[in-house]
Amino acid sequence: MTTVKVNGHTWSTHSGKSKDKVVEAPVIHNEGKLEPPNKYRSLNVFTVFYMLINNFLRSIKILDKNQTITELILYYINHSILLMVFFIMSIYKNFLWIYRKIVLKSLNVTYYPNKSPHIIRDDVNKLNKIPKRLSCILNFKDEDDENGGIDGLIFDISELVAWSVSAGIAELNIYEYNGIINTYNGELNRYINKNLKNYFGTEYIPNITIKIPHVGQIMVNDASKPVDLTVNLLSAIDGKPTIVELTKTMSELAVNKELKIEDITIDLINEELIELVGNEPDLLIIFNPNLDLQDYPPWHIRLTEFYWEYDNKDVTYAVFIRALQNYAKSKVNVGK
């Protein structure tokens, strides 16, 4: 009867946390602070209850004056019920995880671009609207992971670029929390063009421009031709820190009497932030197992539609096209 252990193991491989830690007494009064994952979760059911009883006996001895024994007993009864519920939930979530993985796999088989822009074009033509500006949150994965490291990230971005060009999207934002890709933009550009050749053949290669708004760097492949897709590389620094920088600049201007406080309006800040970071995307695809915005620029997600697939961590065409399909169905009505 070591099901908890088994569960703990399967789940801890996702979260990447080590499970052999020393067990401590439970926190009775939870103050809502940020805590690491509970250490009980990887233990056997019987061990957990043995420890609970132990803790209970210990806390009887050091009972506070303002705490009665019945309160303590009730607390422990309630806490054991909660732990039981969590235990059952962990089993349920494992089954859910398997189910979702199967669904994702079958979706990947159903929607397969086969490195052909025509298939993507056919899928997109069925939709009644497509986003003008698309934003994607990607993850830098550890090198030991599947499709991880810098190479994995570059591969994912180049695939996204090829799909976006085929779908006719004008602007693609790539958000990666650490901004690690910024230092590898030469390689990225080379790989994107190589991948586009795979899709479009060597006769006509779509013209891509890569921008890094934070550094103010622009990489143009062919200035003479019209640009097919602009790729913006964003990171956490384009979010709250940029708004802080803007505030600092405005305060300096105000101190030097070059800016009146009444002149600071939503429109002014919007203009400035569009200049610094870019436009608000219409659709945000989160290639994450859950809806985690990871400090995405807060100003830029006012009316952005979110899309993600539970328990998905890969950048696949199935998720991409389903996001577009979902966006086509949505209806935006500001305030009305």
Binding site: W11, H14, P36, F86, N139, K141, Y177, P289, D292
Partner: peptide, 14 residues
């Protein structure tokens, strides 16, 4: 929060 230490569930960010 209890299981992963994060209210969103597990993360794959390296």
């Amino acid at each position: 929060k209890y299981w992963y230490g994060n209210s969103n569930g597990y993360t794959v960010r390296g």
